[in-house]
């Protein structure tokens, strides 16, 4: 090294490398959203809620694993339902984090003045939230499986149980995320968005509960359709013939609603972002 070191102002450097365009930007936004859902790349404060929820679902999973080790009959598919209130808390925090922030901070013009399109933005955010909700269930499900693997027993039964648990987690993730993100995309204030999400998910639940208790036949069998919290359980009952809901012969109807509701939410979300002013 020379005795005297010199700082060179290297000036402005042009960029001549690749510009990866729209699909890459959309993928990057998806990953960014998924990380943001768990507070990664954010302050410690942003990590508190998601990781508390993840921790609590993990505790539930551990209880499942211990019960299974003691010979209790537990199903992987039960975990999402048991954890559904926690998932709602997660949604009420994360959905506004993903979309309301950008509305509130007016960051959208920075996105839409780039190669990314409005629909890319909306779908990337939806994918982030869906994936985050699925992961927060799939992680603990895998934990149960790992704990069970040491306890002996039939591995293939466990693998089948785990996969069906993943599937039920996906029902929850798709339905819950689509609805929650649509609600959050309308409210620019996070607190209002969180409240609206809780309200929409929970407001019909008591009515549905009462109808299921006192109703008979068709009324009892159709009542769960009225609550987004119950809908995934209805689909589970139709697909896997497990669970405690009485849905009679209406299984295909649950399946159809399970597809159409998230689809309608996604379409409304796209419409919302087509109209959003810059």
């Amino acid at each position: 090294m020379p005795a005297e070191s010199v700082i060179h102002d290297i000036g402005y450097q042009r960029y001549t490398g690749p510009r990866l365009g729209r699909a890459y930007a959309t993928r990057s936004l998806f990953v960014h959203g998924l990380r943001a859902a768990f507070g990664l790349g954010r302050s410690a404060k942003a990590k508190i809620f998601p990781w508390t929820v993840a921790g609590l679902i993990g505790v539930i999973a551990l209880i499942f694993a211990v019960a299974a080790a003691q010979g209790e009959e537990v199903s992987y598919q039960d975990l999402p339902q048991v954890a559904s209130v926690l998932i709602l808390v997660f949604l009420a925090v994360v959905a506004p984090e993903l979309v309301s922030r950008d509305l509130r901070n007016k960051t959208l013009p920075l996105y839409f003045s780039r190669p990314i399109h409005r629909r890319d933005y909306a779908l990337a955010k939806l994918a982030s939230l869906t994936c985050a909700v699925w992961l927060i269930l799939a992680g603990p499900l895998t934990l149960i499986f790992a704990a069970g693997a040491f306890g002996g027993g039939d591995v293939w039964t466990d693998v089948r149980g785990l996969l069906s648990g993943y599937a039920v987690a996906a029902f929850y993730a798709v339905i819950f995320s689509a609805l929650a993100l649509l609600i959050a995309s309308i409210a620019s204030r996070r607190a209002i968005a969180a409240g609206a999400i809780a309200a929409v998910f929970l407001v019909t639940l008591p009515v549905v509960g009462v109808l299921m208790e006192v109703g008979e036949g068709t009324v009892e069998q159709l009542a769960p359709l009225g609550s987004p919290v119950m809908l995934p359980e209805g689909i589970r009952t139709w697909v896997f013939h497990t669970g405690e809901l009485e849905i009679g012969g209406f299984g295909p109807l649950y399946g159809a609603v399970g597809v159409l509701l998230p689809l309608a939410c996604a379409l409304l979300l796209l419409l919302r972002y087509r109209k959003v002013s810059l």
């Binding site: 490398g17 790349g41 954010r42 960051t107």
Partner: peptide, 27 residues
């Protein structure tokens, strides 16, 4: 843009990096 458009809870370097990726720059 003319108006405020920045997320207050993000670190400047992270935010500008993110916007660079949105413009198609590799990570």
């Amino acid at each position: 843009p003319e108006h405020d458009c920045l997320p207050p809870d993000m670190i400047a370097a992270e935010f500008v990096t993110h916007m660079g990726r949105m413009s198609g720059l590799p990570r």
